[in-house]
Amino acid sequence: MKLVDLATTIRSKNAGVDHITFDIICRERAKFERVRDSGALSRESVAKLFKVPLERVTDFVVFEPANAVKFTIRRVQPSGCKGETDMFGSQQYAPLFDVEIP
């Protein structure tokens, strides 16, 4: 099953001026546990998906109270610099939709 069929919220947004943070939230506990325990989402897997070196994934946590998995990627330059493509970091989550959750 794809992540988009299990999670009710998949979003990205600036976390300060140097990072973009990603939140994956499931409404149902069972679906959250399936995502959490699948191993499909990890620091390594998201680094690979977004083609960034592992050290740019600065945080990767499971946040139980919100049925959520959250990770944060460091930007290559601060938000809003010349050449900026997504100043709010709000459209970087789409590739997560198709992640296969076994």
């Binding site: 300060g16 943070t21 939140d23 939230i25 945080d59 946590v61 946040f63 109270p65 919100a66 959520a68």
Partner: peptide, 12 residues
């Protein structure tokens, strides 16, 4: 709870 993690590097 999901707002507590909004726009933060880390929800804790």
């Amino acid at each position: 709870a999901s707002h507590a993690m909004y726009e933060r590097l880390n929800p804790f």
